[in-house]
Amino acid sequence: MTSPTLAQHVLAQAEDPGIVDETGPILDWGFAAEIFPEMLMAFLKVTLVVTVVGTIIAAALGLIIAIMIMVLPRPLAWIVRWAANFIRMTPIVVQLLFLFWSFLWLDPMVIGVIVFGVHYATYMSEVYRAGIESVPQGQWEATTALSMSAVRTWRRVIIPQALRSTVPALGNYAISMFKDTPFLFVISVPEMVTVAQTIGAQTFRYNEAITIAGLIFLAASYPTALLISRLEKRLAYAN
């Protein structure tokens, strides 16, 4: 799991600073432009795909977990809740490594999507729980008065009302998942930061690759965060 090039390079650099070209500028714009397309491809093909698919899994599974905790009989609900707590309170990195070594025949990217989806589902289930609890008691009573079935009650009355207020919080977790995707480095999925590190190891020019990676992250996550905080204010105003 420890990339040998990484360790060797840092140690080599510590022992022999001459290994680095110190005559050139710290940021070589020509080189940056040269590697930019490769990094952008890694971003679009891996980082974004993992984030989007992971978010879809997390949003669906989170709702299922939240409903399971509310409708299952007590001992089962207790088991589901503590299983969710367990997943939430343990590191993604260790979960990734665990599944990676358990299922060596699976594509690491699939493992990444599953781990991110399940991990963030446990967070999102808490958001859904708060949303479901905020549905007024009268709505539940009304469904009983209309003798609606349990499935119909959830599908037609409770979930549509609960979902509205949860959107910003879910969006924030999606951003947080996006910023955690570099952890895929440990199971050698070629996402953007891994590609940046590989470029650095091959050319001994880390500055451009890693700086570009950081800038792409900033450029993607900050506007999304702004959008979500506006949505949040709007929803708060609507209520």
């Binding site: 840092v10 570099p182 950081g214 992250f217 900050y222």
Partner: peptide, 14 residues
């Protein structure tokens, strides 16, 4: 906005 791993790499390499 920047990820933890990017920050770590930046401090270690750049």
């Amino acid at each position: 906005g920047i990820s933890l791993l990017v920050l770590l790499f930046w401090l270690l390499y750049v």
